[in-house]
């Protein structure tokens, strides 16, 4: 009897000690991971790093792969990518993210710098943790993971170079745990001399506002006036997703789309709604002339939501008699169906 009592007390104390050690270690991990990611976003902590690498993204059922040159300085970065004949250059000047169009000498603003990170929002939906230290492009880097609190899966993993605090590798996973994007340096140049001025947009380049129709959130009434219909909000969105705003998008033929945007601190959930407008008929339009697409026109209503694209995010369409609803987001199939079915 005394033996069993001692064993029971031992079990309780052991479990309490184990739980204490686990939570202490997790808290320590979380703190260190957060500190590492903050240092990777802090120009004062960063040191220049030049390198070559690859950028891969899964889209349209296949992997797209580009060779890339990375010029990473203190608070500024420029990445030049080459995918066959396609060239894409991105510049993050610390305040804004730009796409550089060499042919037209134009810098197109895409939005605020990716370095601005709302930690409170991230931590509400993701649990940061420390992964192993690994060598990336011959440099010692610390892996930091972000695990979704909703799916309990790793959503992203980044490797921060220990000596320069630059991110040298990123892996992005979808809600089902599949790898959907990978950016990685494969070789680096030691102790480069790289300054902010070298990476600045040349003075003779034009600066343009990209995605101007989706840059500012508008009110429902303003949208209704512009588009002629009122958007319907989903009654249900997954836990952690917060409404960011209502944006107006226009397809290449000028048809207005409502974009209801939600964020969970890291990922975006977008609901697109559109009334058939009859524009874009024929082969040149976005309607019947192009395969099965009926984007701007009325079509046979879908009996049930259909998956029409699966890349870094799933895209599910539900064409109804008077409204076409499309939901795009990094969600599981069940979650995305719950969202689209909750739209009355």
């Amino acid at each position: 009897m005394r033996l069993w009592l001692a064993a029971a007390i031992g079990v309780v104390l052991g479990a309490a000690a184990l739980a204490g050690v686990y939570y202490a270690a997790r808290g320590l991990d979380r703190g260190l991971a957060q500190q590492l990611l903050e240092s990777a976003s802090d120009p004062a902590e960063q040191r220049p790093l030049l390198g070559r690498g690859t950028v891969e993204v899964y889209a349209d059922g296949r992997w797209r792969r580009a060779e890339a040159d990375f010029d990473l300085a203190e608070g500024v970065s420029r990445v030049s990518m080459q995918e066959g004949p396609l060239q894409v250059a991105l510049l993050d000047d610390g305040s804004r993210l730009w796409r550089l169009e060499t042919a037209t000498k134009t810098a197109v603003a895409l939005g605020p710098s990716e370095r601005s990170l709302d930690w409170a929002r991230v931590l509400s939906s993701y649990e940061p943790g420390l992964g192993p230290k690994q060598r990336v492009a011959g440099r010692l880097a610390q892996c930091v993971t972000l695990v979704s609190r909703r799916t309990r899966r790793v959503a992203a993993a980044v490797w921060v170079d220990v000596s320069t605090s630059q991110i040298v590798k990123r892996l992005t996973y979808d809600a089902d745990g599949h790898l959907v994007a990978a950016t990685e340096l494969t070789s680096t140049e030691a102790t480069p001399r790289l300054t902010r001025e070298q990476l600045a947009i040349p003075r003779d380049w034009r600066r343009a506002q990209g995605g101007e129709d989706s840059a500012r959130s508008i009110s429902v009434s303003a949208f209704q006036t512009a588009a002629g219909f009122a958007p319907r909000l989903p009654a249900h969105v997954p836990r952690g997703c917060e409404f960011v705003g209502l944006f107006i998008r226009t397809c290449p033929h000028g048809c207005p789309y409502a974009e209801l945007r939600y964020e969970d601190g890291l990922r975006v959930l977008a609901v697109y709604e559109h009334r058939p407008c009859g524009r874009g008929r024929g082969r040149g339009g976005c309607g019947r002339g192009q395969g099965q697409g009926r984007g701007c026109q009325a079509g046979t209503p879908d009996r049930q939501p259909v998956l029409i694209d699966q890349g870094p995010a799933k895209t599910v369409r539900h064409r109804r008699a008077d409204l076409m609803v499309v939901v795009t987001g990094d969600l599981t199939a069940r979650e995305i169906l719950d969202v689209i079915r909750s739209i009355a």
């Binding site: 993210l97 796409r99 990716e114 995605g211 697109y272 694209d309 995010a313």
Partner: peptide, 21 residues
Amino acid sequence: YARWHAEASMTGGLADSCALA
């Protein structure tokens, strides 16, 4: 839709802007 979504996601903190671009 995928492009619009990628545009909206590109500037999020910790987003892989290169892959999205």
